[in-house]
Amino acid sequence: MTTRSRSRLSLALDILNHGGLLIVALIFLFPFFWMVSNAVRSNAEVLAIPVRILPNAFEWDNFAKAWTQLPFGRFFLNSLFISTSVTIITVIVSCLSGYAFARLKFPGREALLMAYLGTLMVPAIMLIIPLFLIVNSLGMVNTFQGVILPVAFGTFGAFLMRQFFLSIPMELEEAARIDGASRLRILLSIIVPLSMPAIGLLSLFTFIGQWNNFLWPLIVMTGSENATLPVGLTYFQTQAGTQWNFIMAGAALSMLPGIVLAILLQKLIYSSIALNAGMGGR
């Protein structure tokens, strides 16, 4: 094969590859586009047949209307507080328990880890009623702690952090022990800074998971003043009808923090991976 025909072949393969990726990307992006497209048209047009890809008239003020028609600012702050709290608690608890499972030697460690992981196999939906009963008996219904505490102690984070901690060379810890660091100091000063990729990932998953969490806040928060964004969006569905355009506008707005966080943490995750390249030894 000549060089020219080879380069033509590789060009054709490139086009094919990128074309394929572009199609997949468009398929994934379409729901987002559809959400925004419906957010900026009138409710009548949302329901109109035939369906139009782009609105007849762009109603950009739907965002402002959706924001003001219901106490969206309040919903936003509620969601932010709950998601941030759950994320912080989850990261702290996961780091501590992950470190214990990765590095501390104590009798029954493996059995405990298995039991811990076993809870991952129980579907979350099965736990909703027992959890609600517990929250109720603690008098935490319609409180933030009632929404936050039951979901902040997941086992997935502990497992994720344990696996990451195991990949950090033992000699770094030994060097720190000789330098005079306690276990907690080693965790805080050595292990955690080196685990930023995993912590970033865990934070992102936890935050977005809680930001989008619908069922648990719906059950625990009985008053609209404590509603989160996903719950708040349902208030556009009334007996008088559903304001799809406002739901879509609200949904589009509620996605923004997640996107911003993903972009911020992505940087952190990549910079930490580059940092870890210098960890090398043997």
Binding site: E171, I178, L194, R282
Partner: peptide, 14 residues
């Protein structure tokens, strides 16, 4: 009251 130098250096990368 000891100090140790490791084969892999064990420097804190961050």
């Amino acid at each position: 009251d000891i100090a140790m130098v490791f084969q892999s250096y064990a420097l804190y990368p961050h």
